[in-house]
Amino acid sequence: MSAPQFTGILAAAVTPLTADGSAIDATGVQRQVDHIISGGIHGLVPGGSTGEFTTLTSNERKQVTELYVEAAAGRAPVVAGTAALSTAETVELSVHAEKAGACAVMIVPPFYDAPSFEELLAYFGTVSEAVGIPIMYYNIPSASGVQLTPEQLAQLARETAVTSYKDTGGDFAWLSAVQQQHAQDITTLNGWDTLTFAALASGAKAGVWGTAGVIPRLCAGLYDALAVRADLHAARELWAKIFPICRFLESHNYACGIKTGLDLVGVSAGPTRRPVLPLAPEYREELRTLLTAAGVETVDAAVAA
């Protein structure tokens, strides 16, 4: 299989919803994609945690994939989140994503009843047989209950269509072990916001980053300074602006924080789905203050709506 070599920053994209949260907002998807790509971001990853995939129906998830591929219109690769609790549904969503034009799929292991490594090999093996596009393994042990060793992750890549992994584990030593010892088997993409600087500095080729949907120019600038130009001074200056925003987002419900940020920068994506509630007013204003300190222009709520 010809695997895409992901480089740069891929935005973990939200699922825009109508004002009452009852339906997907197609216009909102186009708004997000234009904002992200015009800001210099290199790819899109809808249908993941930031996209609230656990709150969507199977048909809504297919709709989100189709809308993001259509809105991207070949300007940036789209990696569709297709994880589900059953192998059959994961296959169905993955086959659909390939037909819709996604260049790869991102899959987190089935959660709630965490599979054994043997079951995981079978799960990803079945998906691999059903599609002709690569799989990005979504490593998020806190949500999936699955903690692979670096050696197991490399084995998974050798035996299935997994070619890369998004690491949202927060264990930098683990990420480094995979990166240093198993780069020939699997490509590392950072997925833990506050470790972005460290991961890129250590050689990670790409990152999947929800914050990039809110402040794309700053995030793309960090990648350029750190990973392309190796300008440590410029990268540190950018990171000093970005890090407080990342830290804030990691301290709240992430999708809600991202959607609040989108409201504040004038590209609203609607509410999060219940049971997640809106950020309290004081936290919303705290985020506004952080964005302003980073040099990002914000708007009034009435304008954002």
Rank of each mutant, 00 (worst) to 15 (best):
G207F: 05
A201E: 14
T149M: 08
P134V: 08
V108S: 08
T50Q: 04
E119I: 06
L67M: 08
G48S: 13
G74W: 13
F124Q: 01
A206S: 15
T57I: 10
L10W: 03
G210P: 08
D167A: 09
A157C: 11
A280V: 15
L218N: 06
Q32N: 12
P216T: 12
V108N: 00
E119G: 15
A294Y: 11
D224F: 10
A304G: 13
S38V: 14
L44A: 08
E60D: 10
L93K: 02
I9W: 01
A100K: 06
V296S: 08
V79R: 00
T87C: 13
Y138P: 02
I37R: 02
H252R: 11
G270V: 04
T90K: 03
D224K: 15
I37E: 04
S128A: 13
A225G: 08
A199Q: 09
N190I: 13
A206K: 03
A13M: 13
F248C: 04
Y165D: 02
P281E: 12
A212I: 07
T260R: 05
V303S: 13
V29D: 00
P150E: 04
Y137W: 12
R31W: 11
A198L: 14
T211Y: 08
P4V: 13
T163N: 06
E52C: 07
T188R: 02
S176L: 12
G8R: 04
A230Y: 13
F6L: 10
Y165T: 04
S2I: 14
G39E: 10
T160S: 15
R31G: 07
A104V: 08
V131F: 05
F6Y: 09
F172M: 14
D167R: 02
H233T: 15
L85K: 10
A280G: 08
L56Y: 01
C256P: 00
D300E: 15
W192K: 03
K259V: 05
Y68Q: 01
E151D: 15
V33H: 00
Q63H: 11
H96Q: 10
P150R: 08
E159M: 15
R274Y: 07
E237R: 13
H182F: 15
L67V: 06
V69P: 00
G28W: 00
L153N: 01
C246I: 03
F53Y: 10
P271M: 07
P278M: 07
E89K: 01
Y223G: 03
H35I: 13
V29G: 01
P278E: 10
Q179C: 05
I133R: 03
E60Y: 05
R217S: 15
A212L: 12
T260Y: 05
